[in-house]
Amino acid sequence: MRLKEIIRLLDAVVITNSRDSEAEIEWACATDLMSDVLYYSRGNSVLITGLAKQQAIRTSDIADIKVVVFTRGKEPDTQTIELSRKKKITLLITPYSMFTACGKLYEKGLRCCPE
């Protein structure tokens, strides 16, 4: 799924972005637990999380995740935004809950990282 489609479906606000909105994102992963991101995710995926903290960005960088979505309109602090800019991670905020965000992306064909 293209990044711009993810942004549109989630009615997301773009906080940081250094990639083309035509970029193709292959997989999705939805969790608040960082070890699970590391365990189940693949590179080039989108992480949907309620953990609007630096940890989510740091973990995504380690796991080569390119796009992070914070749910329920949670605004991250400036350190979190700075880190995502530095790590070239696209950071989005969606007003939707994790459930709704997953539903909207799944409905349009995005799938979770295969094991």
């Binding site: 608040d32 070890s35 903290k53 940890q55 973990t59």
Partner: peptide
């Protein structure tokens, strides 16, 4: 903090 779920 998003850690400590026994996957480390």
């Amino acid at each position: 903090m998003g850690w400590g779920a026994g996957m480390g």
